[in-house]
Structures are given as structure tokens and as C-alpha cells.
Amino acid sequence: MVLIRVFRMIGVAICIHFLCVRFGLADDLSAEQPVTLETFASKQDFVPTWMRLAEDKVHDPSGPAINELQYPGEILSRLPKDTLGNQVRWVTAMQSGAIKPRRSRLLPEDEIPVLDMDVLLNLRGSAHIVRFPHLAHTQWLSCNNCHEDIFKTKIGESKIGMINILSGEKCGLCHGAVSFPLIGCGRCHSVSRYTQLPYRAPGASGVGAVQ
């Protein structure tokens, strides 16, 4: 029993250590600025490449549409670069006006609310704190995409955890499927535990935090 426990602890320690080193998730006490995935990625010379549709193992290379459908790299290469997923930093693309996707199918455009409020999650864990930005999400989504179905409209009520995220629930429903994938640990776990946490501000814009 004791032996099993020791093995388990060693196993967990190795895993966490590997992940933290790989993604700079742990607070580096000696450095002033913690290394995050962002800084890690920007140090590498990264040239994005996009797969041809005929080679993607989804489209039929002998089908009649293969020359009619657009090669993704043609457009995606002109958008802000990313090292993850389909290699487009969609948030920057949207906020810089590089793309202007329509918010409503038919004119006139409906008013779809945008909310600028960050929520801090995972305050008790050991990895970096998760900053969930409502702004980046509500520019793409409307409230009913998430509330009350996936997330409760009350901080700390939604039972979010890395296990259900990895199995395609909660944040993992979109992240890894359509939005930037889960290997971008540092993009969610983006706030160091050693920063002064902003207190919960009243009103719609501010920062909320789980106890």
C-alpha cells in the first residue's frame, strides 16, 4: 500500500514536472517574468504550413470538387500567425479588423451583446491561474452558446476541471475542436500566481474570481 502510494507520487511528480517544463506553466521563482507558452513560441522561428485538401485524408482526392474547393493556406496565410491549431490567431484577426465575419445571417444585423469581463478560474490549483476573457468570446459567440447550458452564470458554479476539458466538455467543447487547441496551456493558464490579483469589481466590467 505504502509502496503503491510512493510510486504514484513519483509518477504524478514526473508528469507534472514534464508538463510544467515543457510549457513553462510553473512559476519560475528566479525570473521576474514567468515564461509562458507565448514567450516560448515567439522565440522559435515558426513558418506555418497548411495541408492541401487532397492530402488531408478527409476530402476525396478523386472527387470532382477537389479543384473547386479553396486551399486554406490561400487565405489563412494572410491572417495573424499562430503556432497552434489552424495557425491563425483568431482573436487578433477579429480585433484588428483583418476579418469581419457577420454576426447575423440576414440584414439588418441584430444587436448581439459583447461583454468585457474577465473571470479568473483555478485559483486553488498549482498551475497558472486561468483567465477566461468574456470579450474574446462574445465577439464570436452569444451568451446562450454558453449560459446556462455549458456554464452557469455564477462564478464557481460550473464544475470546470482539466479532466472534463480534455474529454471534450466545458472549455474543451470548442477548444481543440474549432478554437485554439488544448496544447496551448499557457493561453488559458496565463496569470502567474505571484501577480497581485485584482479584487472582484462590482458591475458588468471587472474581474471576478473564484474563492
Partner: peptide
């Protein structure tokens, strides 16, 4: 193709 449609429409147009 999501990549193609999200250039033109935001997610809430289709979902839910």
C-alpha cells in the same frame, strides 16, 4: 469546413 465559414460568419449565426 469550419475554417471557411468562420471567416464569413461568427459562431452564433449557426450555433445554437
Amino acid at each position: 469546413p469550419h475554417w471557411f465559414h468562420r471567416l464569413r460568419f461568427t459562431c452564433n449565426v449557426c450555433h445554437p
